[in-house]
Design a protein around this nucleic acid. Structure first.
Length: 438
RNA sequence: GCGGGUGUAGCUCAGUCGGUUAGAGCGCUUGGUUGUGGCCCAAGAGGUCGUGGGUUCGAGCCCCAUCACUCGCCCCA
């Protein structure tokens, strides 16, 4: 048997799965709610290719990041035409592609504030565990333009918290920090190197490695043996320059004025190199979530566009892990697919008639089911019942001869006779009244 | 890349000290009298016990290997 590739999965209709966190309808629901929310906040949808030139992520996300250094699905395209074979990569995240599109289409010429959102699969070649897959789905958004007003950050976070509330997701915590800009970074690095110089040999191997390559990342080390040292480090917030500090404090003030609760997490450093100033994440404490409990994360990236060859552009963005959001949903939403009408056909002539009636019903907007087996009335009604059909239209020889058809209500077993000449109107009326009552 | 756990029917699982024909519930099909669902009752279909080797008179059960899945580390959403 050929199965899905390792650490990927099928999202299925509820009928075919007993895992609510893989119900395709739950994903659809989150997407629908998110789209409506994006619309209210003035975001427009963008769809970028599922693969990009490898260089985009190498430059945008950063060569030293785990994502780029060991988690990308990358291949060399075969040459041909006038192209040499070029290195392509399944997108591991969607911010760099959106910024690429912003630059490529010179969006700044149309508007000085561009707000875009995306929904789609992302790919990382990771090990896989609860809430982590090699193909996973993100809903994300980017605000691009000349302005880095802290209210932009706060407004996006406000939208996210509203979205979680709308979805009924509670038991979460918003964590926020500032990683400063190119002026603050060297101070962080210098401070970390200075403070840890005589202790680094006692710390974890990963941390010793980062001491050389990326000292900032030491801050969010989870290694047990590192904790005492990290906790004693001075707060990086103290080292922010005036501009970054004012910005951070303003973001916090804007959140407070909206009644949004958050925790300042001085050790929150995100694993993508492009972040500047604000970084944040929301974690879930739900039992349904595994150890990977970050539902969403994001931040400001005021240098990314330039890194990718565009004009100086301020940026703020975030991504929600759809797979994890769905795990955190309070209840499993039953999907649609309940037929209004099931056609019971008895005999070959009735079957032929039924096929045409199904077409007419569907054209009239009725969810109509008909099956292709010869069935006894008992078996056909069993099936209608299993499908939770609201009504069964019974077509047998009697009905065909008399032109008086039988419409059975599955809810209360009552039956009425409807004239063939006016059957659609009769059924529409019946369905309408039942739907109102439901 | 590194650890732990689990593999028996479509699904969830039981299977005693290693013993003869491997079970249950759910689901599926059919039937319980003429053309009428749900509840109930009955019958039926469905298994190379993940795979390969080994130990043994005898392996679903013990041992080894392997594969798959799963949870965690790392990292991230």
């Amino acid at each position: 048997m050929i199965q899905v590739p390792q650490y990927t999965r099928d999202l299925l209709p509820a009928d075919f799965s007993n895992d609510p966190s893989a119900f395709v309808h739950a994903f659809q629901r989150v997407e629908t709610v998110a789209r409506a929310s994006f619309h209210r906040y003035g975001f427009q949808e963008i769809r970028t290719p599922i693969f990009e030139r490898t260089e985009l992520f190498a430059r945008g996300v950063g060569l030293e990041t785990d994502i780029v250094s060991k988690e990308m699905f990358t291949w060399l395209d075969r040459g041909g035409d006038d192209h040499e074979g070029e290195s392509l990569t399944l997108r591991p995240e969607n911010t760099a592609p959106v910024v690429r599109a912003y630059i490529q289409h010179q969006m700044w010429t149309k508007s000085d504030l561009v707000k875009l959102f995306y929904i789609g699969p992302q790919f990382r070649r990771e090990r896989g565990q609860r809430g982590r897959f090699r193909q996973f789905f993100q809903v994300g958004a980017e605000v691009l333009g000349s302005n880095d007003h802290p209210a932009i950050d706060a407004e996006a976070i406000e939208m996210l918290m509203g979205l979680l509330a709308e979805l009924g997701i509670g038991d979460t915590e918003l964590r926020i920090n500032s990683v400063g800009d190119e002026e603050c970074r060297p101070r962080f690095v210098e401070m970390i190197r200075r403070e840890l110089a005589d202790k680094i040999h006692l710390m974890s191997e990963a941390t010793r490695q980062r001491y050389e390559t990326n000292p900032l990342r030491i801050l969010d080390s989870k290694a047990e043996e590192d904790q005492p040292f990290i906790e004693n480090l001075p707060s990086t917030i103290e080292l922010l320059n005036t501009e970054c500090r004012d910005h951070f404090e303003a973001v916090c003030r804007y959140l407070e004025s909206r009644g949004i609760r958050f925790r300042i997490e001085p050790r929150l450093v995100r694993g993508l190199d492009y972040y500047t100033k604000t970084v944040f994440e929301v974690v879930s404490f739900s039992d349904a979530i595994g150890a990977q409990n970050a539902l969403l994360g994001g931040g400001r990236y005021d240098k990314l566009a330039e890194t990718l060859g565009g004009p100086p552009t301020k940026g703020f963005g975030f991504a929600l892990g759809l797979d994890r959001i769905v795990m955190a949903l309070p209840e499993t939403t039953a999907g649609p697919g309940r037929p209004d009408l099931f056609i019971v056909h008895l005999g070959a002539a009735a079957f032929e008639k039924g096929l045409l009636l199904a077409r007419e019903a569907r054209t009239a907007g009725i969810a109509c089911a008909i099956d292709f087996e010869k069935r006894s009335p008992k078996s056909a009604l069993r099936l209608a019942n299993k499908l939770k059909a609201r009504f069964a239209l019974i077509l047998g020889e009697n009905e065909l001869e008399s032109g008086q058809w039988t419409l059975r209500s599955m809810a209360d077993s009552s039956q009425e006779t409807i004239p063939a000449s006016d059957w659609l109107a009769s059924i529409l009326a019946a369905i309408g009244s039942v739907r109102n009552a439901e």
